[in-house]
Amino acid sequence: MATDAALRRLLRLHRTEIAVAVDSAFPLLHALADHDVVPEDKFQETLHLKEKEGCPQAFHALLSWLLTQDSTAILDFWRVLFKDYNLERYGRLQPILDSFPKDVDLSQPRKGRKPPAVPKALVPPPRLPTKRKASEEARAAAPAALTPRGTASPGSQLKAKPPKKPESSAEQQRLPLGNGIQTMSASVQRAVAMSSGDVPGARGAVEGILIQQVFESGGSKKCIQVGGEFYTPSKFEDSGSGKNKARSSSGPKPLVRAKGAQGAAPGGGEARLGQQGSVPAPLALPSDPQLHQKNEDECAVCRDGGELICCDGCPRAFHLACLSPPLREIPSGTWRCSSCLQATVQEVQPRAEEPRPQEPPVETPLPPGLRSAGEEVRGPPGEPLAGMDTTLVYKHLPAPPSAAPLPGLDSSALHPLLCVGPEGQQNLAPGARCGVCGDGTDVLRCTHCAAAFHWRCHFPAGTSRPGTGLRCRSCSGDVTPAPVEGVLAPSPARLAPGPAKDDTASHEPALH
């Protein structure tokens, strides 16, 4: 009773807030009518008042009428009001819900409408889902798969039609296919003929059939049928067999079959498995989609049935006599038709004709302190090069084509190399640097090759510096006499390219 009084008091307290929050009759008014909170006449009256005075006034009048009803109607109103779709449509209802007392429970059932309790003993237990329907569909599909699609060729003596089998029958139906081979029951999904010589313990000319048996419980189990008994694959494991010639990621696949039913060829011909030897223990289905393919039931050349050999690369099948050149017997292992072999060759040939990528240039590290003349020119003028003790990398590039010797140069053309002071002394051009340390401070000019250098860098042994005729380390061993002091540049003949010694390969005349 306390809860009923509290709900009535809360409705009177929030009546105006609810009326202002509800700006549309749908969905709240319609939901109240659906849950029998508002009768039909009051529903029509509220809609009429909404058209006349507006939605807030109409709902305020409806809530005032609701306060005169019993506690069950008020409880049902609060339940409908706080439904998710009403809270989404009328956003101003959320503060009312947040301020609702926590001790007021809106989930209690309506009085007088409590459903009768059902004894637990009368409640049926839930049924577990079964796979009976899938099993029945598999039974119905198996006879259809064994139905012949056409008439065999005159040369083929193997013609068999499976008798119709009602689904209610649980007995196995067997077809006489000759040579002791028996087909599987209607619940078998796949059958492959297997030679009895590969099964340990088999006697006589009995041949087993590799099947997948579907049981009534819905589970499946792969086994071997020899005669009327089934054997699990673990009985046929043979770890010492060295003649297993397995197909790549293979499961067994029928390579020879008669049109209309699988079996042995007439005249004692023995149908073979995809792999010879003992049956392997793992009978998992292969991951290669080509091995799941269903080959055609007629020859791809003459479009006739009979004894066919199936290609492992495509769905086509052929007569042995229709092949070019014809085959006398079934080859062992994987067999592919000429079209598949030709496609494989065409895929391999473009790969062989692809040009080989060019090898990157060989990189040879230079000892610290040495650099090529090109690196000396590329440096920024007026700045010493940083990191001189790091190992430089010199790339061996292809030799350029031989060019004509340089033409003779006048001494005026070499004027930018040297600057003559007032006393006739050779001065260095701006930006000249030593080729060893890279520093341009207090550098000297070689009178023979006009290269800038430090005496301490080229002659670290402490050799005394002569007063005139300074030469760098590369030119100090040259027998050519030094030019007379005061000459602007060496003779043009000295600039012609010539053979250089091994220790002077990195010091070429550089223009500054």
Rank of each mutant, 00 (worst) to 15 (best):
Q182M: 04
S248Y: 11
L7V: 01
P176Y: 15
A264T: 13
A61E: 05
G268T: 06
S135I: 13
S220D: 04
T147M: 13
A138E: 11
S71C: 08
R89Q: 04
G201C: 10
D4E: 13
G240N: 15
V118E: 11
I96G: 00
V188C: 08
K259F: 11
L29D: 00
L7Y: 02
Q44D: 09
L81P: 03
N244M: 01
A121M: 13
S135P: 02
V104S: 01
R110K: 13
M184L: 04
R110Q: 03
T232K: 12
K131Q: 01
A142T: 06
A246Y: 14
R203E: 01
Q57S: 03
S249L: 06
G54A: 00
V192P: 06
G178W: 06
H14I: 01
G208P: 03
A186W: 02
L49G: 01
T3K: 14
G267D: 05
T147V: 09
A202Y: 12
D36H: 00
S234R: 13
R110L: 14
A140M: 03
I96Y: 02
G219S: 07
Q44A: 06
E45D: 03
P116K: 07
L49Y: 03
V20Y: 06
F100V: 01
P119G: 06
R132T: 01
P176D: 00
N244L: 03
F82K: 00
A61D: 02
A170S: 07
A140D: 11
W78D: 02
R203A: 12
E53D: 05
L210V: 07
A193C: 14
I209T: 02
K165N: 08
A191D: 09
L255E: 05
Q173C: 15
N86M: 14
V37D: 04
K221M: 10
C223P: 05
P143C: 09
P154Y: 15
I74G: 04
G240Y: 00
F77G: 01
A2V: 01
P27Q: 03
T232I: 09
R9S: 14
R127I: 05
S220P: 01
G251I: 13
A134K: 00
P124E: 09
A134T: 01
R174K: 09
A142F: 12
E137C: 05
N244K: 01
L177V: 07
P154D: 02
S24C: 06
E53V: 14
D4Q: 00
Y231P: 05
K245F: 15
K165P: 00
G268S: 11
E51K: 04
Q189H: 08
K133D: 02
G204D: 05
Q44K: 14
K245C: 10
A140R: 12
A261L: 07
P39E: 10
L158I: 09
E207A: 01
K222V: 02
Q182D: 03
A140L: 12
L28M: 02
Q157R: 05
K83G: 01
V192M: 11
E229I: 02
S71R: 03
T68S: 07
G150E: 07
M194E: 05
R79M: 00
E171V: 15
D98S: 02
R190G: 05
K114I: 10
P266Q: 09
L146D: 15
L122P: 05
A73D: 01
C223W: 01
A117Y: 15
K133F: 01
Q189A: 13
G228V: 04
S234Y: 11
Q182H: 15
K120L: 12
A205F: 03
A202V: 11
C223D: 04
P176G: 07
F230K: 04
L177W: 15
L146S: 10
P126H: 02
F100C: 04
P154Q: 01
M194H: 09
L146I: 08
R132W: 05
D103L: 03
G251Y: 14
D103F: 07
Q225E: 12
S239P: 11
E136Q: 15
Q213N: 07
L87R: 12
R15M: 02
E51S: 00
S24L: 01
L66Y: 06
A134H: 05
P162Y: 15
Q157P: 11
G201F: 10
P176K: 14
L128S: 07
A186Y: 01
